[in-house]
Design a protein around this nucleic acid. Structure first.
Lengths: 203, 203
DNA sequence: ATCGTAAGCGTATGCCGTACACCTACAGGA
DNA sequence: TCCTGTAGGTGTACGGCATACGCTTACGAT
């Protein structure tokens, strides 16, 4: 009976994501998203309660793009690694919104599906119950932490250079470590830490 | 010759931290910090270039409170664990500013000293060069990720309850895992994941 | 053709960070 | 003792933010 909606929430989320991809997280505002959709600022509020909900929709959208189908057969560590890499790739495609995932990942359907697949792999490997709960949280902690680190000064970036040139008498170990760190790419870094965690999770 | 400063940057940082502790990150504003110091808003800018620098000072202050003296002798894994727990405890005392540490940890003296001590322990354990660089970054990724997770919906909180009540036919593994997760405290969770990572780092 | 509903919009409020121009307290030299 | 240059401290103002509120308007059902 009333006037029909002209947009879906998905379209709103997609517009917001486009703004964030183009102008960064700082450029993401209700005004900017409304302009992206060709509406007035306040019209946006017909689709979203407030900015917080909009951020949730963006995270849902990005996390929903992660392929959560069970990876091909193989050793369980490799299969979990595939899942971790899928998550990392999806977020790398929208690096600007990575900080939002920490606040809004909770309860997102994509995140739940990812967890479901991972716990399934763990269960097949005999990791269940409390051990599975701890393993899943450890994986989430590592993956989200590593992704944020990666987008806030890569291992081979200027930050590492600065550390490598620290006074050798005050920070001898850091200076030496940074020297070696220069040659390490982001992939090797991410996968290296991940495989250590996975080795340890097998008890 | 000119009028002397009446405040140190440390005092400014302490006031800002007090505001954040009391009113949360959302309550942290230049106006609020200036009021905390009993000055006008703009006087604050005599001590700090902009808000970004103020945030850096806060992080420096909190990270500077971490005890970075070498832990007592013992197995290297236990010594690294002590370092991780010290970092976690320091941040837990100021949970509101945890998100700031992701953006401002880089180059903070406290963070450097922490890294120096950790790489020292790793070196004594025979982990050096590229392996040490990867190990350090993995530890930072896990610790920061876990701390953020902890302050954004604990394992035994309402979020877990919601997951435990998910449709069992769509998320069977998650539902079962969440059931077991309910009984896990934050310490057990943090230390469990950490010891897995440390086991794996020993190659 | 009309009418109720909700879409969409304009305006306004109270925050925010901060640029700028001004006044003022103080240490050093006279 | 007074004078003066420097930098500390302040008030005002601007543009941008999220969003509350009330109006207008498009539309599907009658």
């Amino acid at each position: 009976m009333p006037r029909p909606r002209s947009l879906t929430q998905d379209q709103v989320a997609a517009a917001a994501l486009a703004v964030a991809d183009r102008d960064g997280l700082a450029g993401l505002s209700m005004r900017a998203v409304a302009k992206e959709l060709g509406m007035s600022t306040m019209a946006l509020y017909r689709y979203v309660r407030d900015r917080d909900e909009l951020e949730g929709l963006i995270v849902d959208l990005v996390l929903g793009e992660v392929d959560t189908s069970p990876p091909p057969d193989g050793p369980w560590r490799e299969r979990v690694e595939v899942m971790a890499v899928r998550m990392r790739d999806a977020l790398a495609a929208h690096a600007a919104i990575v900080p939002l995932t920490m606040t809004h990942r909770h309860g997102s359907p994509g995140s739940l599906r990812w967890g479901e697949t991972v716990t399934g792999i763990l269960a097949q490997a005999g990791i269940e119950g409390r051990a599975a709960a701890i393993a899943l949280r450890a994986l989430i902690a590592y993956v989200t932490g590593a992704i944020q680190l990666e987008h806030l000064g890569a291992l081979s970036g200027t930050g590492t250079d600065a550390i490598a040139e620290l006074p050798g008498d005050v920070f001898p170990n850091m200076a030496k470590t940074a020297q070696h760190a220069r040659g390490i790419g982001p992939d090797e870094e991410f996968l290296g830490g991940l495989s250590a965690l996975l080795r340890g999770l097998g008890s």
